[in-house]
């Protein structure tokens, strides 16, 4: 390997074509060990295809997928024994209990019975399904299934966990618990986690690094801050403003203020495009003129707005 850095997950010019449709286009993805990586993109961007190629379940048209140094299409068994995969909308055998489902996974992994039982008990405890382990999966709620999916991954005790849309269809409280669990898997156990999702605001909190994936291409990758600079011109910040009262004079005041380049109304919010973050300077000016700021926020700090703005840019 020499000086080359070893990533937990790496793809090199990975491509997948279905006829004329290019599902994944020259993907170069790098995920460092022990980090949480969020693969974000709209539906149909090729996220699931990428994940299946990472696991060696789908042959890439060209390029390589490398997991912990092993080629996914050449050593799929090695890769699959290192990686825990939780599919999108994970399914279980309804007529079996939660424990029996996990036991099947353990047997497929060739775990001896005593170790399997120990791991199953630990995994169920960790995801908070200890009491429900003996019940049939058909009685489980959506959130419980999702947690059972995580337990199913934990039974393998993998170094790397790949989750496809883990938060889909769960209520806010459930999502909060799920994300806390995922964070603990990364931070306490030191596992590498790749999460694919289209719900940015939910997973941005727990991701160390984020990649934005659109139409088979990774258009940006890095930490949230890096993404901002990659996707948006740095000298162009947007500030949302709502004041009481809100009238024509406010517009004139804003126009006159140095540093504000443009303004426009978005519903009842006034959006100011400025050179720098001038919130601190602007507030005294507002109050001095008898306007009380009710809402004042800098756009571009949340992934949602980066994402939205990126697409707006695309459309334009």
């Amino acid at each position: 390997m020499g000086l080359e850095k070893e990533y937990a997950i790496e793809t090199i010019n990975l491509c997948k074509k279905y006829g004329n449709l290019v599902a994944v286009d020259n993907l170069n993805l790098q995920v460092e060990k022990g980090t949480v990586y969020g693969l974000l993109g709209p539906n149909g961007a090729g996220k699931t295809t990428t994940i299946l190629m990472l696991l060696g379940l789908t042959e890439p048209t060209s390029g390589q997928a490398i997991i912990a140094g092993y080629d996914s299409s050449r050593n799929p068994l090695q890769v699959k024994s290192l990686v825990g995969y939780m599919p999108d909308n994970v399914g279980f055998y309804e007529e079996l209990t939660g424990e029996e489902n996990l036991l099947y996974t353990a047997e497929l992994n060739g775990l001896p019975r005593s170790l399997a039982n120990k791991r199953i008990a630990q995994a169920l405890e960790r995801v908070g399904l200890k009491a429900a382990g003996g019940r049939k999966v058909s009685e489980y709620s959506r959130g419980m299934r999702q947690r059972l999916g995580i337990a199913d991954v934990l039974v393998k005790d993998p170094q790397i966990i790949i989750m496809d849309e883990p938060t889909l269809g769960i209520d806010p409280k459930g999502i909060h618990e799920l994300l806390a669990l995922i964070t603990s898997l990364a931070k306490e156990d030191g596992r590498t986690i790749l999460i694919s999702s289209h719900l940015l605001h939910q997973i941005q909190k727990i991701c160390d690094q984020v990649g934005i994936f659109v139409q088979g291409k990774l258009i940006a990758s890095g930490t949230l801050k890096q993404l901002e600079s990659q996707l948006l011109p740095s000298d162009c910040l947007e500030i949302e403003l709502k004041t009481s009262p809100s009238d024509e004079n406010l517009l004139a005041l804003c126009r006159a203020f140095p540093g504000i380049r443009e303004l426009k109304w978005e519903n009842d919010l006034l959006v100011l495009t400025c050179d720098r973050d001038l919130r601190q300077d602007f507030v005294p000016a507002l109050t001095a003129n008898g306007y009380c700021p009710i809402h004042l926020s800098l756009r571009g700090t949340s992934l949602d707005s980066i994402y939205l703005r990126y697409f707006r840019k695309e459309e334009a």
């Binding site: 696991l55 379940l57 699959k80 825990g84 393998k156």
Partner: peptide, 14 residues
Amino acid sequence: DRRTLSRVLSQPIY
């Protein structure tokens, strides 16, 4: 249908 296929095949089996 039960969406178990990908989960089972992602285990280290042929």
